[in-house]
């Protein structure tokens, strides 16, 4: 997956992309962490809180899987987070373009809003296409920049949980301890992304990276099928029912997503309305 999440995409939308994709995401994660642990008092299951938070703010399923592994979340929690994310992604994928059209937000701002708020990259592509060519391009640009954060967030979560959540507080976690507990797949993700972005693409061209990804996609799809099957096999619905009782995970997702939409809209409006900054020249 790291090979297809190109770090070099970072420049594809300049500072506009940075502002929309990156300014909001960590703020939403921190807000949801605070809301989940403090307001909803889900302190007894912090990995679940961070898994839902990253699924909401980054890219749904992929981010949930990476963060769940980084925080040592239970399989049931991952199943629940993925389920909630998928249900709402489908709804947002269809309704967001309808609302954007009805409000006359326009393809540029609408596409950026979709790219920043709809969870899955596939759903972003579909929703952006419903707006038009410019909407599709802007939505995918923003999402591809946001996707770069999966590895960084998983790494930060792994360090945070190792040094704070799983630490008894009596001693400072040493570098070797962090290394032992750190899920090593994150390093592989980074390595693949950096190699594809800064070695393979500059030397051999974008088409070669595309060909390699086409080949890797077959393995990746099988790996995802196996991962989802494994998650399903290890899911205990009785435990999930207990987990969801009280509706806290649902409240966390809904409140977090509303916060995400409002904040993303504010940043999109400031960056792309043309009132505060010059409009980006996107050549289609």
């Amino acid at each position: 997956m790291g090979f297809s999440v190109l770090f070099s995409n970072i420049v594809n939308f300049g500072l506009y992309g940075i502002a929309i994709a990156w300014l909001v995401t960590p703020v939403v994660i921190i807000f949801m962490w605070y809301f989940g642990t403090r307001v909803l008092k889900m302190d007894n299951n912090k990995p679940f809180v961070i898994t839902i938070a990253s699924a909401t703010s980054v890219c749904g399923t992929s981010a949930a899987i990476a963060t769940a592994a980084a925080s040592n979340a239970k399989k049931n929690d991952l199943s629940l987070a993925v389920s909630i994310s998928i249900i709402f992604t489908i709804i947002m994928m269809v309704l967001e373009p309808v609302i954007i059209r009805a409000t006359g937000l326009g393809e540029l701002m609408g596409g950026a809003l979709i790219g920043g708020t709809v969870d899955s990259t596939g759903a972003v592509t579909v929703a952006g296409t419903a707006l038009g060519k410019l909407g599709q391009t802007t939505a995918v640009l923003v999402k591809s920049i946001q996707n770069i954060m999966i590895g960084f967030i998983a790494f930060a979560v792994a360090v945070f949980f190792t040094t704070r959540v799983e630490n008894d507080g009596k001693h400072k976690a040493s570098a070797s301890e962090i290394w032992t507990r750190l899920p090593k797949f994150i390093l592989g993700f980074f390595a693949a992304s950096l190699i594809a972005s800064f070695i393979v693409q500059p030397l051999l061209g974008k088409s070669v990276v595309g060909s390699v990804n086409k080949l890797l996609d077959q393995y990746k799809n099988w790996a995802f099928v196996l991962a989802f099957t494994s998650i399903g096999l290890s899911t205990n619905f009785r435990e999930i029912r207990e987990e969801i009782s009280g509706g806290k995970p649902l409240v966390l997702y809904v409140v977090g997503q509303i916060f995400n939409i409002v904040l993303t809209f504010a940043v999109v409006y400031i960056a792309l309305s043309g009132k505060y900054f010059p409009l980006p020249a996107i050549a289609l």
Binding site: S8, N9, G122, T125, A281
Partner: peptide, 21 residues
């Protein structure tokens, strides 16, 4: 179609030639 890995040649949707930073 839900998951982007299933979209054939997904790379072509990521355009790096439409905006010059």
């Amino acid at each position: 179609a839900y998951y982007y890995a299933d979209i054939p040649e997904f790379e072509r949707y990521i355009r790096d030639d439409v905006y010059e930073s």
